[in-house]
Design a binder for these strands. Sequence first.
RNA 1: CGGGGCGUGGCGCAGCUUGGUAGCGCGCUUGCUUUGGGAGCAAGAAGUCGCAGGUUCAAAUCCUGUCGCCCCGACCA
Length: 580
Amino acid sequence: MLLRMSSLFLRTLRDDPADAEVPSHRLLVRAGYVRRVAPGIYSWLPLGMRVLKNVEAVVRDEMDKMGAQEVLFPALLPKEYYEATGRWSEYGDLLFRLKDRKGADYLLGPTHEELFTDMVKGEYSSYKDYPVTLYQIQNKYRDEARPRAGILRGREFLMKDSYSFDLDDDGLKRSYEQHREAYIKTFDRLGISYKIVFATSGAMGGSASEEFLAPTPTGEDTFVACRSCGYAANAEAVTTTAPPARPIEDAGELRVLDTPNTPTIETLVDHLNTHHDTSITAADTLKNVVVKVATPGSDKTETLVIGVPGDREVDFKRLEASLAPGEPAIFEAADFAKHPGLVRGYIGPQVLKDLGIRYLVDPRVVTGTAWVTGANEPGKHAVNVVAGRDFFPDGTIEAAEVRAGDACPRCGAELSIDRGIEIGHIFQLGRKYADVAGLDALGPDGKPIRITMGSYGIGVSRAVAVIAEQAHDQLGLVWPREVAPADVHIVGTGKDNQIEVALELAGELESRGLRVLVDDRPSVSPGVKFKDAELLGMPTIVVIGRGLASGVIELRDRVTGDKQEIPLAEAADRVAAACA
RNA sequence: CGGGGCGUGGCGCAGCUUGGUAGCGCGCUUGCUUUGGGAGCAAGAAGUCGCAGGUUCAAAUCCUGUCGCCCCGACCA
C-alpha cells in the first residue's frame, strides 16, 4: 500500500531526543519510528510498525521453513504454571505480577517454557507424535532492574521463542542444528552482522548452548574471538588454559615478610620490591577474594574464597556463571567481623583448611606454582607460598577476568575481545525441564520415554534496534531492503508538476510489486524533504525535482551515496532494477 | 540496590547564583512571498515551571520532603 508523506502519521524531530544515548534509540525516535511511553516500554508508529512486521515476517518464514509450527500463548498468565516449577518465587522482582478482581495472582509472561511443555504434555502422549517443534512470536514482560538504550533492552519486548521436543539425544542435536541453520538464514536475511559464540548454559542446566551476538560498541555482552582458529565464546563461557604443573621440590622456602600498609596488590608489589629483595609483578601475587554464596530457595549462605592472580580482577559475571545456580555476593565489613580468621587485605590460603572455608582457584594456580600472598596477619605477606605444599585448593573456578591476548582454549593463539548484543540464543535444554514437568511419551515397548528439549529465542524487537544500530550513518538510518518500511522513497519537489509525476511513478512502481514511500507534501522545502528522506533510511531514493523540465530525474543509493540522473521515460525500469 | 545527572508549552533548552510581568529555537495555526539542502516576513495558539509543604508582601528561583526520569555498574532476547 502506497505510503504518502502528506498523510502519513509521522513527525520527524530536528533535534536528538535528550534521553537517547545509543544511535538506534536516537534515530528511531528522531525518525518517528517509536515513541517512549514508560521506561523500557515503547509504542510503534506506522514506519516502525512496518520494520517490526518485516523482521517478524522473516523470522516466521524461516521458522516455518524449518518445520516449526506457530502457536500463540497468552501473555497474561495465572500463577499456577509458574508456581509448579518454582519460578513464581525464583523470578523475584523480574516478574510483573498482578491480581484479578477475586484476588487471584497473575503474571505477565517473562518466558513461556511452562506453557509450551504443558501444551505438548496435554496433546501428545505417543512416541509416534514426536519430534515436534513449536514456536510463538509474542511480547514478553520483564521488570528489568534497569531498562536502557531504548528498545534494545525494554521491559516489554517482542520475542520469538521456540521449543523442540525429541525422543532422544540425536533428535535433540538435529533440532538444535536445524535451529542453528534457520537462525543463520534469518540473521543473514535481516542484514545483521553477527557472531555465533559459545555460551554458558546458566541456571537452566543443559549442555550445548550458543549465542548469536551482534557486535556493537554499545553491546552488553563481552565475548572473545580467536582469529586463528575461529573459536568464539561469551566471556562467561571462556575456559582458561592451565599451565603444566611444576615439581614442588624446585620451590623456595616460604617466608613471611613485614609489609605494613599494603592492603592492595599495587601497594604490596611496590613495597616488596623497594623494601625487600624481591622483584615481582602483580601477576606473581595471589589475590584472595571472599564471597558469600546463596543457594536459591534456601536460607543458607556459604563463605567461599576465590584465588586469582593479582593482576586480574574477579569478573562477577563469570563468577556467577561458574557458581550457578548459587548466587554470589560481595563479602562486606559486617561479614568480616563474623570471621576473625579472615584478615581483610592480608588473606592467604594457608589457613583456609583450618577455618573450614572452601577455596577455589583460577586454573593458572597449578600444583608447584609459588605465589606471593597474604600471611593472615595485618601487615604481613608471605612469599613462596606453593600450591600443593603450603595450600591445597578444593578445585578450580573460572572467575578471573578475561583479557585480550589471553590464550585461545582451542589453539593457544591470542584472543581478541569485543562487545555485542545478544539477538539469538539456541540451547539444548536436555531433560532437566521435562523431568520437572514429567513430560513423557509412551514408547513402542509400552514404557515411558522422557522427552528431551531444546529452547531457542530471537529478540524480534531487539533485532530492529540492532539493525538500526549497525545500519546508519551521520544522516540517519539506512535500512537493509528486506526490513525497510519501503523499497524506495520518492521525493517530489518543485513548483511544477513534480508531485503529480512522483505519484504516477509511485503507482507504476507499486504495480511492479515495489513498496513505495512518496513525499507528496506540498509547500515543504526541498532541504526538509532531502533531510527527511536521509533520516528515514529507505535504501533507494528517487528525486523528482528541477530536472523534470528537461525530462530527467535523480536516482540515489542511500547505502553508497551514489547519485545518477536518468531519463523520466526509463524511470520505472531503472528504479525497479535498482531495487531488485 | 550503589554512584552521577535532570524535571520549565509537543520536542530541544535558557532563566535559578542575586526572589518581583515565564523566555528562546524547532514544531504547530493563518496570510503573503519562496522552492535543490532543515526558507523569509507578519500575525497567532499553546506552559498550575514534577508534586507537597514551608519561608516571604511576593517563589520557576530560597528551605524541607517526596515522586519521577535519564546515564554508569550487578541480570537478560
